[in-house]
Each structure stands twice: as structure tokens, then as C-alpha cells.
Design a protein around this nucleic acid. Structure first.
Lengths: 189, 189
DNA sequence: AGCAACTCAAACACTGGTGTTCAATTTACG
DNA sequence: CGTAAATTGAACACCAGTGTTTGAGTTGCT
């Protein structure tokens, strides 16, 4: 299987993108649904991915890989609070879109695999928070991991509120930033 | 069907409790599993609940009803921050235990029904936050609903961290309280 | 004691998913 | 152009769940 033929490569790309789309809507999306979205026969999917779990794995990896370049453009220098606000602004929708996909992955992949796939993007955030702590902009009476988790948690909450129609798309990033910055501030702010 | 016989009542109680337990572990728990936990035949379950959805509904209602008295004991008067801390202390584990059950309910019940079942306990928290805002203890530049949601979100995050072994059971309530109080504080604290 | 209510295992039909095989057709590529 | 690769729907076996029926056995109630 030295090199795939061009139509095979096209199929694989379509299936991968379809898997990301379908699983982002419904973490339990069946192989049939994914095939339909990809505009491809179900058998073709099994021709390229041995089983559903491997397909989900590939889809998650694909989504993360796609997200990387966009996030690399964010300026994380300067005032940590402002940097965090910029990061939130450009990543919270992305994090949300991946959420359903992540659930799909958690249902079929071992936790260690999930952790591996997320290592790179998670590290970026951790670094920024670390720097904020070092420079006295963020509190140090709580572990870095906890603060990062709270950030994620609040972003997901905003996504939920948006989905439920209780929050306008334009407000969300501001709400998240204002909330998290307060939560991250040193005590005698 | 005026009055159930004693053994029927016993069965129903066992099934209800088993449903709460099983669904709190796995939101996809099958009727068979629930029956097994209840120490009862699967057919007996169908004898008392027409289908799985109705059973999940009853289980959620049961769990909420059980939780009520314990939470009614919490003193919500005095300094809003302190009151919130007390409420967190005595309710965050409870909220977590219900989370998986809530997911089960969301999978089979209409959103309106979920909202109905949660109305009473949710109101208690909303009231406290409202009072905190009125008294100047909590910020008013964000909607009450948002603040309440952030509280929930951070509690769930703590539960996740606990499950993942990254947080000690004793620390959790403190982490939540310290984080949320900071997030709730008026800007020029 | 006797009857109705209850319990339960076994068997059934049904649904919806996974993963495989096959034979026919289309398509890329040298 | 010819061949090997790729795609396809149809059919298949399999599994796990839901919900029902049956018939025999047990248990509460009066």
C-alpha cells in the first residue's frame, strides 16, 4: 500500500471531515450517518478505517491538527490578562465545537489516548497561566491545573448557554473573559 | 389500583433507588442492570414502569426529592459570601452525584420536563445570588443566570477533577468556594 | 383458607447498530 | 488501452437493548 490513489485520498479526506462534522453534532453518530455526510458508501468507510473507534480517533486528531495554525497566530505576549482575553476570544467557539467530538472520543478511546491527542493545545494555555502567576497577574493560591480547568469549564458553560439561546453570540467571549479574569485575580486585587 | 400491596411498594422503592444508583454511575444503564441492582426481575420493573423513559423520570424526581430536606437545613442568611460557601460545602457532592442521572434524563426526556423537575432547587440558589447582588456583595455587571451557571459549571469541574484523582475530596469545596467568590466579587473589590 | 396481587424466568418479536463478504461497476494511472 | 485500485449496494451474521406475553410459583391481605 505504497501510495493511495487520488480518489482514495479524496474519500479519506471527505470521510475525515464528515466524521468531524457529524460527531460534533452528535457524539453517537453512526458510521452510516458519517458516510452519508461524506457522500460515500458505508462500505467505503470500512475500507479505510478498520472500525468506528479508529475513525473517531482519526477525526479527533484531524480536528486538533486543523485548529493548531489558527491558534498559533494569537499573540500571547504582554499583559497576561489581555493575552488570556485574546486567547479566549479566538478559541472558545473552537473548544466548544470540539466538545461533542471529545465526548465521542471518550466513549470509545482509552483516557491515555485522549490525553496524548490533547497534549499540545493544552500546553499552550498552561504556559500562559504559568507566566501570569509568575508575574503576579494571576493568583497562586490555587494550582495552575485548577485554573486552566476553570477556564475550560466556563467556556463550556458559555457554549451551553449559547445553545440554549440564553446568551448572544457576541456577548459570550466578553462574559467568559470578565468572569475568568476575576476568578484568576490575586486575592487583594 | 387503589392501594399497592406491601411487597409491590417495597419493589417500587427498591427499583427507584436502584435506578438512581445505577444511572448515577452510568447514564446509559439498561433496565436489566437496574433490575439487577434492585434485586428484582426485569419483568417486575416493566410491571411498575411502562418504559425506560418513565423510569428515568421517576428516578430523577426521586433523587431531587431526597436531596431537598438536606439542603433546606443550610443557613442562607447573613453575609452572602459566607452563605454561598456553606451552600457549596453541603451541596457540591450532591450536585455531582446527580449529574450522570441528569444526563440520562436529558437523553430521554423533553427539556421542558427537566426544567420542571429542577425548578425548586435551582430557585434556592438564584435567590441567594440575587440577594448578594442587592447587598453589593456580588457583582451586577453580569446577569444572575450567568453567575448561577458559572457556579454549577465550577462544581462540575471539581467533580471531574475528583474523579480523575487530580483533587482530594477534602480540598474540593474550598477550591470551588474560593474560585467562585472571586468570580462573583464586584469589580473594584 | 382462599383469592387476588405480585414476582419471575424464559421465550418472543422488534429495532438499530457494527463489521464482513460479494459481485458488479467505475475510476485512476502507467 | 488495459489493469489494478477503488467504490458501491445488497445481503449477511451478530450483538445488545427494549418491550410483551405466558404460565407457574409466591406472598400479602382479609
Amino acid at each position: 500500500m505504497a501510495v493511495k490513489r487520488a480518489d482514495a485520498q479524496r474519500s479519506i479526506a471527505a470521510i475525515l471531515q464528515a466524521a468531524v462534522d457529524a460527531l460534533s453534532r452528535d457524539p453517537d453518530a453512526s458510521v452510516s450517518e458519517i458516510a452519508k455526510v461524506a457522500g460515500v458508501g458505508r462500505v467505503t468507510v470500512y475500507g479505510h478505517f478498520p472500525n468506528r473507534a479508529d475513525l473517531v480517533d482519526a477525526a479527533l486528531a484531524h480536528a486538533i491538527e486543523q485548529a493548531h495554525p489558527g491558534l498559533d497566530d494569537v499573540d500571547l505576549t504582554g499583559d497576561p490578562g489581555a493575552a488570556l482575553t485574546r486567547l479566549i476570544e479566538s478559541s472558545w467557539q473552537l473548544v466548544d465545537r470540539s466538545r461533542s467530538l471529545l465526548i465521542a472520543a471518550q466513549n470509545v478511546l482509552p483516557p491515555s489516548r485522549i490525553l496524548d491527542l490533547h497534549a499540545a493545545p493544552a500546553e499552550r494555555v498552561r504556559k500562559l497561566v504559568e507566566r501570569g502567576r509568575d508575574e503576579g497577574a494571576f493568583r497562586t493560591d490555587l494550582p495552575t491545573e485548577w485554573l486552566v480547568g476553570v477556564l475550560h469549564s466556563v467556556m463550556h458553560h458559555a457554549a451551553d448557554e449559547l445553545n440554549a439561546g440564553r446568551l448572544e453570540s457576541g456577548q459570550a467571549a466578553g462574559y467568559i473573559a470578565v468572569t475568568v479574569l476575576a476568578a484568576f485575580s490575586p486575592i487583594s486585587g
